[in-house]
Computed example of a mutant assay.
Amino acid sequence: MIDRLRSLPGFHPDLRWIALLAPRRTVTPRSLPVLRTLTRAIRGKDPDVYVLEPGVAVRWFRPSTARGDEPGPALLWIHGGGYVFGRAAQDDALCRRFAEELGITVASVEYRLAPEHSYPVPVEDCSRIYEWLTRRPDVDASRIAIGGASAGGGLAAALAFRARDREIPPPVFQLLVYPMLDDRTGAGPRHTRLWDERSNRFGWESYLGAADRSEAVPARRDDLGDLPPAWIGVGSHDLFFAENREYADRLASAGVPCGFHIVEGAFHGFDLVASRKRVAQGFFDEQCAVLADALGVRRSRGDLGEC
């Protein structure tokens, strides 16, 4: 076992044991029903829940420092799952940490999943909740950030285009955590974990269906101008590393400020499966720092526990 551990190529020291045991892929057509059953069993942290329609809901997190209905900044958060599985409750602890660390409201989106609901349904669900958020009296519509991880990051990027093209009040920032942006991505780093080329192909095919890919896939969009400033964070061993770097470069070339944060030796979803590790804590800290700057808030620096 020790010899196998030492042979792992370039994984971050905090992640080597997990990388030794973690699978290369999580979802296939065969495993999808099992994954959905497991995620349905997630209870979450019992926040307030607003149901807009069957399958479309908001899990609502207000910081303990909130003052009644006084309007304040907010984060619209979108969960990951390759567009085909997952639910908002899986990120309850993370959303609570964002709310308390930054003193902001966090609205976590429950959207409908592919392949039963292919594009544009998931994006429309997110857009509807975003517009609902902008109309709330306890939210400052000029200080809303959008963000998400993996497929959630891809949906956040797609939502930014929606807001721009439909003249919806724009978000002030995009927090894109190893976002799933490009259906053309094939083989990535040799030693990926949790999400590989096969999972990626299945997720995108399920999501896109017969959609126009030049519109549905963020990385295929030609015009990236006039989008909100962004931050992209990704591990060097993530399948999405190259597509994320290219998207960050294209945003910058289009005049959109974009920070690009690399976690050396980290694989896809590392912060979810190793949330207690220092490398994951540092990744979360970086996200809080850029959100605090974008939303104009001060951080609490409290002891927030683990995701």
Score class of each variant (00 low, 15 high):
I2D: 14
D3M: 15
R4N: 10
G10T: 04
F11S: 11
H12V: 05
P13R: 11
P13E: 07
D14H: 08
W17I: 12
A19L: 02
R24H: 06
R25Q: 15
V27R: 06
P33A: 00
L38F: 09
R40S: 15
P47K: 01
Y50R: 08
R62G: 08
A66V: 13
A66Q: 14
D69R: 13
E70R: 15
P71K: 15
G72P: 10
G72V: 01
L75I: 05
A88Q: 02
A89T: 11
A89E: 15
Q90Y: 03
A93R: 14
A93H: 12
A93K: 09
C95Q: 06
R97D: 08
F98M: 09
F98A: 11
A99Q: 05
A99R: 11
E100W: 08
L102P: 05
V109E: 00
V109M: 03
A114M: 10
S118V: 03
R135E: 12
V139E: 01
I146H: 02
G148R: 03
A149G: 08
S150A: 10
A151W: 00
G152N: 06
A158S: 15
A158L: 12
A163N: 10
D165L: 09
D165Q: 06
F173Y: 09
L175K: 04
P179K: 02
R184Q: 06
H191I: 11
R193L: 11
L194V: 15
W195F: 14
W195I: 11
R201A: 10
Y207W: 07
G209A: 06
D212N: 14
A219Y: 00
D238M: 08
A242F: 09
A248Y: 03
L251G: 04
A252T: 14
A254P: 04
A254C: 02
C258G: 09
F260M: 01
H261V: 12
A266F: 11
H268Y: 01
H268C: 00
L272T: 09
A274R: 01
F283N: 11
L291R: 10
L295G: 04
L295E: 09
L295V: 12
V297H: 00
D303W: 00
G305F: 06
C307H: 13
C307D: 14
